[in-house]
Design a protein around this nucleic acid. Structure first.
Length: 555
RNA sequence: GUCCCAGUAGCUCAGCAGGAUAGAGCAACAGCCUUCUAAGCUGUGGGUCGCAGGUUCGAAUCCUGCCUGGGACGCCA
């Protein structure tokens, strides 16, 4: 538990004691004490609404209750210097802020670990994200999913969850047959022979390049093989090529996975039948119109779903159920899937399957990532999957840079559609939030370097010298970091990290402009400020690390 | 028709378990570089929180209905 949490817990327990002592409520009746940090400084460091909450239980006016609480409140035990009743019945607490001076040594000592907590209680949680079909390049939607997924995993880990990152490879089924046919057509075309693309073929430039590559390497030799052998070759070759490309691009994008799970392996390891058997035993399976169905409506889905088509092949859902069963068999007690908005309709049936397998519905959480619109020069860039004319992640990385993409994609709540402004992301100006934050970090590094060059050692700093309002605001913000990470983890909202780090950078810039850090006239003050700067540097770097953005030492 | 997401300042969006006068960036306007990076700072103006009800001490936040925009509703994946 960090200093801020200790402070809050101490305060809460004093409030609880006071309520019980004042005979307003018993310990059992008492609701959880809520402490909030008022926006207005005149309202103190913390405020509680407990008096209003107790109005019904104690049958008294909130302000009267607040008075009774304060009459029985021992402020000294919680570092409270002043407590006031305000508004409809808030109690505002003003704290002795010396506790803040303990914060800097903690941050400096913890370094990269500052912000870590144990609220995840080591819970085994699996996050499946991206899982783009190996049939083309990653586009913007995947990139957002990758950014959010990776950042969420980082946040969860920092908050003490035991996280496994997984990519589900859809390397079985129709789309792979299509891939093989598409590669074949592109290969033929590269040889100068007439061949139409299959109807649902993959039109991407990557497949054209692949066809040319094959033509170059093999000439027309591949045509000597049987059609079946050719397609099998194109399938394997295309799959490997696409998967390598996905892995390379994602790695470049600073996203890695603990496990790449192959759909085909479900067939090879005979995992699909046993999963179906479980549903069958429990009576959720029935036959109709020559097909095998899952009665997902038993669990709130709006219609039942086919598992085995009347041509005796599986639907997409069937191996996916086996896959999720496998995840659960591996001992994860929480599964998070990150899907694009176009898959949201798939949630009820998957959740039904989880329940049919004997688990709670909320074992599976699905985070839906809304769509991305790309804007350049104020105009929306149209994307078309059919013609393959979508902007790829690779192109975007080359044009915009990884830091800006990662930051922009995680900056907004997943629920919101995201307008990605190319001009803004590319601009090296203060309009660009990424540069704004990185600049704050670089500024600090410059000061620390200059101090080091001058031989200033601030190890023996005295934090009590940091009395200015701007320094104090900065300190309080630093103290919030652990809580912010914990909230982002529990609510699955990595965008809070960008909000936080932006605010922190803003406070740093403000402080920087108001106070001279390196002051030859005041050695002790300089040391204290340098220590504060180092703590800010560490916190910014840790926050940026969570969202996969670099923290440069100079710009 | 059913379901999901969104609707907050001119624009893009925050707003944490309901809390005090609704915030930030951009844009507009006015200032700050003989001083640690002006990729920065300071200040001003700008809002019926889509609409209508309800829940309560209190609603941008929760519930219901409606309106608008986007998406999903396959024996596709």
């Amino acid at each position: 538990m960090n200093i801020m949490q200790q402070m809050q817990e101490a305060l809460k327990s004093q409030i609880e004691d006071a309520v019980v002592k004042a005979d307003l409520a018993t310990k059992e009746e008492l609701p959880a004490i809520i402490l909030e940090q008022p926006k207005d400084k005149a309202h103190g460091d913390y405020a509680t609404n407990i008096a209003m909450q107790l109005a019904r239980i104690a049958k008294k006016a909130p302000r009267k209750i607040a008075e009774d609480i304060l009459a029985n409140f021992d402020g000294e035990k919680a570092s409270v210097t002043k407590a006031e009743i305000a508004g409809p019945g808030f109690i505002n607490f003003f704290l002795n802020n010396t506790y803040l001076s303990d914060l800097i040594p903690t941050i400096l000592e913890q370094g990269k670990d500052y912000g870590n907590s144990t609220i995840g209680k080591n819970e085994k949680i699996q996050v499946e994200f991206v899982s783009a079909n190996p049939t083309g390049d990653l586009h913007l939607g995947h990139a957002r999913g990758a950014s959010v997924g990776d950042s969420l995993c980082n946040v969860l880990q920092k908050a003490g969850y035991d996280v496994a990152r997984e990519y589900y490879i859809n390397d079985a089924g129709n789309q792979i047959v299509n891939l093989a046919k598409s590669v074949q057509a592109r290969y033929m075309q590269a040889l100068g022979k007439e061949m139409d693309m299959p109807e649902d073929g993959y039109q991407g430039a990557d497949i054209i390049a692949l066809g040319e590559k094959l033509a170059k390497e093999h000439g027309d030799k591949l045509l000597e093989e049987s059609e079946e052998k050719q397609l099998s070759y194109f399938r394997d070759y295309g799959l490997k090529y696409e998967l390598d490309k996905l892995a390379t691009d994602l790695k470049a994008f600073r996203v890695s996975f603990d496990h790449w799970f192959s759909e085909t392996s479900l067939y090879e390891d005979k995992r699909i039948e046993p999963a179906l058997d479980v549903l069958k035993e429990k009576g959720y399976i029935f036959e109709e119109d020559g097909a095998t169905w899952f009665r997902s409506t038993d669990f709130g889905d709006d219609k039942n779903r086919v598992l085995i088509k009347n041509d005796s092949t599986y639907t997409y859902l069937t191996p996916d159920i086996a896959y999720h069963k496998n995840k659960l068999d591996r001992g994860f007690n929480k599964l998070i899937n990150i899907w694009g908005a176009d898959h949201h309709g798939y949630i009820p049936r998957m959740r039904a399957a989880i329940q049919a397998l004997g688990y709670d519905a909320d074992t599976l959480e699905v985070e839906i990532i809304q769509m991305v619109n790309l804007f350049e020069n104020g105009e929306k860039i149209k994307m078309s999957k059919r013609t393959g004319k979508a902007v790829t992640l690779r192109e975007l990385m080359e044009e915009v840079g990884i830091d800006a993409i990662r930051y922009f994609f995680v900056m907004r709540s997943c629920d919101s559609h995201l307008d990605f402004d190319m001009n803004l992301a590319k601009s090296e100006s203060n309009d660009n939030p990424v540069y704004y934050v990185q600049y704050a970090h670089a500024r600090i590094c410059t000061m620390l370097k200059q101090a080091a060059d001058k031989g200033i050692d601030f190890k023996d700093f005295d934090a009590s010298l940091l009395t200015s309002e701007k320094a104090e605001t900065l300190l309080k913000k630093l103290g919030e970091f652990t809580q912010v990470v914990g909230d982002a983890a529990m609510n699955r909202t990595p965008h809070r990290i960008t909000n936080y780090v932006f605010d922190l950078a803003s406070l740093l810039h403000s402080f920087y402009n108001a106070e001279k850090v390196l002051d030859p006239e005041n050695v002790e003050g300089t040391k204290a400020r340098l220590a504060l700067m180092d703590a800010v540097r560490i916190t910014i770097a840790n926050a940026l690390d969570l969202i996969g953005v670099e923290a440069p030492e100079s710009m």
